[in-house]
């Protein structure tokens, strides 16, 4: 390394150089943030107040789009589909992930390999997973109905059946528990063994230890997973787009699918912007609600130590 050569005219103090270098290091991120995140956020808020069909100029119409949304049945229908999916898929996935994680932290051999195997579905993208499950859930030749037949059950039409389509997507989402499982394993491994020892001295059985040690100590992790899974579930798009295009009979017409079609198929950019801002506000409200409720059920060790 050569010592830096500086022009004697601009001799800056070390502190000044540190400040300038500091701004330079974050400059690229900041430019990207302004141009591709913050700017567009503000722009989309403005677009949501306009009537705009992409080819013409945005025409300011105040809150008309939001007013229109209130009486738009598709908004409510697609929100309801999204909510139904969220309240079934999120708990199901978290419970499954917790069961697997609890088994994986037991002192047995081969846990690393098994953890990787459980993780595989999460690395495959939304589109390949959707196509694979489309084939598995095929009513006539799919493997799911074949297994059901072996059990003597006549399988439904799955994604072709309006009654089953949404539950097919819930089932598919339960296949992919890799991320919550890995995070829960890490959370479980962080629980200090002496807590279990103390519980045993107090005569706790397996269930007591799970209920009064594992769950409270794991609750911050579960809380984090709950927030991120709910946000994720509200953004389901790939599977619905690829597998069902929202059908049959709009049974899987997710909110983002409605947004996408409004904006990019019917080129109603103003209304689509309003739709997405409603989603954003809903996500904030839900996150806030979960945060609010957290004081009731999330246990932070640091609160006690104080």
């Amino acid at each position: 390394m050569t010592p830096p050569t500086r022009s004697p005219v601009f001799r800056l103090t070390l502190r000044q150089r540190e400040t300038i270098s500091g701004y330079l290091t974050i400059l690229p991120w900041f430019v990207g943030f302004l141009v591709f995140t913050a700017g567009p956020m503000m722009a989309s808020l403005y677009y949501s107040l306009t009537d705009w069909g992409l080819v013409d100029q945005p025409k300011f119409i105040g809150l008309m789009n939001y007013q229109k949304m209130l009486s738009d049945p598709l908004v409510w229908q697609s929100l309801w589909v999204t909510v139904k999916f969220t309240i079934t898929s999120v708990p199901a996935r978290l419970i499954l992930a917790l069961i697997v994680a609890l088994l994986l932290v037991r002192p047995i051999k081969g846990t690393n390999l098994m953890r990787t195997i459980y993780f595989i579905p999460s690395v495959v993208g939304g589109v390949p997973v959707a196509l694979l499950w489309m084939w598995m859930l095929n009513a006539d030749y799919g493997i799911v109905n074949y297994f059901l037949k072996l059990l003597g059950i006549n399988g439904p039409g799955w994604i072709a059946d309006p009654k089953w389509a949404l539950w097919s997507l819930v089932l598919m989402s339960c296949w992919n528990i890799g991320s919550p499982m890995v995070i829960l394993v890490a959370g479980l491994q962080n629980i200090a063994p002496h807590l279990y020892e103390a519980a045993e001295l107090d005569g706790a059985n397996g269930w007591d230890k799970f209920r009064f040690v594992t769950i409270p100590m794991l609750s911050p992790t579960l809380f984090f997973l709950l927030v991120s899974s709910v946000i994720g579930a509200f953004q389901v798009f790939d599977a619905a787009y690829v597998m069902t295009s929202g059908g049959p009979l709009r049974a899987t017409y997710f909110y983002l699918l409605y947004f996408y079609q409004t904006g990019f198929r019917y080129l109603n950019m103003g209304y689509a912007s309003a739709l997405v801002w409603l989603l954003f506000v809903l996500i904030i409200i839900m996150t806030a609600l979960i945060f609010r409720s957290s004081s009731l059920w999330v246990f932070y060790e640091s609160e006690v130590k104080k």
């Binding site: 995140t37 567009p40 989603l279």
Partner: peptide, 25 residues
């Protein structure tokens, strides 16, 4: 540097914005 911590909070905030919110712009 001045404003570092505030900028870092902004950065953390951006992680919570769904991509769709700025997709059209």
């Amino acid at each position: 540097f001045a404003g570092r911590n505030q900028l870092f909070m902004v950065l953390l905030g951006t992680m919570m914005i769904p991509f769709q919110a700025y997709m059209i712009p």
